[in-house]
Nucleic acid binder design. Structure first.
Lengths: 195, 195
DNA sequence: ACCTGAACACCGTTCAAGT
DNA sequence: ACCTGAACACCGTTCAAGT
């Protein structure tokens, strides 16, 4: 299906799709503007009529993936509110994005950076964050926001640890480590409530 | 103090020092081989007689910083074995390295990657890891290795969270979040012991 | 208006020549 | 042996010309 001359919306999608294909295949070094152009079936210069820099293309690719991430968490939350199950699901989705995008992940950050985000995505992220906060609150957190900061750090850290060679250090699987971390937090939060 | 013609050891140090100066000033984009040569007072081609690629120079710069990191933790451990104090100190040192080197940090990974590490550094890292493990054990961990994995994730995650714009999301300082996380773990580990 | 691709700029790497 | 720096290769970005 050929994108028509002048169809800016379809052209933009073609470019982002071509970028993600290269990126998924061989990482950031493979994201070369000449290859993007080739994948999108256009000339090199045309890519720059849609994205003024390589970095802005990367940002668009990232936004596309973020949308999928938030959608996945929403689906999990629709099915359960068990702390451990939700923690493992969120951490696992996060890890998958981390593998691709690395340290610059801004997943679920409703405040966001300097650029205005798609409002629909923004609202979805805020909703997800509030739902997660509710689960933490029911687990006994005295200061749910501070607990969320700690929990979110655990998610980031597990992804970081199991994404490098470092994880070969110990014998624990992703699932074991993630579930154990969830239980440790539940126990710690229960201690806050009861202690 | 001019490095003498043929003094390979001093020359190597000059190059690594020049690289770190550029890197600290303006990050990875500023680490350009021409600039490294200029900073080390040698010709461009000479850099390649010491480091076959830019990546290998980067690895040497990283090893130099890792040595400082391990030395700092050892000093902390010599002064105290209080869980919270040690956790905050380790997390803070880790964060400082994370700011510079990002997701590729392999700090305190005694097994290491493919390249053989300096044996002295290796031994120091193993010693530090064992000492930290002892503290976790005394805090009540039933499976200290699994707890270390979770704790180490917390360190990584806190660094990750407070190193991006994401940390502007909430009102908590590095110190608050780090201390709270330490206490949550202590409470969780005590639950393992007593529960 | 939108698209093209040759040309430019920049930077990692090489290698024949210098001491 | 060690060092030099001009030359090459690669890739992000621009812009005058094409439809």
């Amino acid at each position: 299906m050929q994108t028509r001359w002048g169809d800016r919306e379809a052209r933009r999608r073609d470019i982002v799709r071509a970028g993600l294909a290269l990126f998924d295949e061989d990482g950031l070094p493979a994201l070369q503007m000449r290859e993007v152009a080739r994948g999108a079936g256009i000339a090199l210069g045309t890519v720059y009529r849609y994205f003024p820099t390589k970095e802005s293309l990367y940002a668009a690719m990232y936004a596309a993936r973020l949308r999928e991430f938030v959608g996945g968490i929403r689906q999990t939350l629709a099915g359960t509110d068990d702390f451990e199950t939700v923690f493992v699901a969120v951490a696992t989705s996060y890890r998958d994005m981390y593998v691709a995008f690395g340290r610059d992940l801004e997943v679920l950050s409703p405040v966001g950076g300097s650029e205005p985000v798609d409002p629909e995505l923004f609202d979805a992220a805020v909703g997800v964050w509030a739902a997660l906060r509710g689960i933490v609150e029911r687990a006994g957190a005295r200061d749910p926001d501070l607990s969320m900061a700690a929990l979110w750090s655990a998610v980031i850290g597990l992804a970081g640890q199991f994404t490098t060679v470092r994880h070969e250090l110990h014998a624990y699987s992703w699932d074991d480590a993630t579930r154990y971390t969830a239980r440790l937090y539940v126990s710690g939060l229960a201690g806050e409530r009861d202690g």
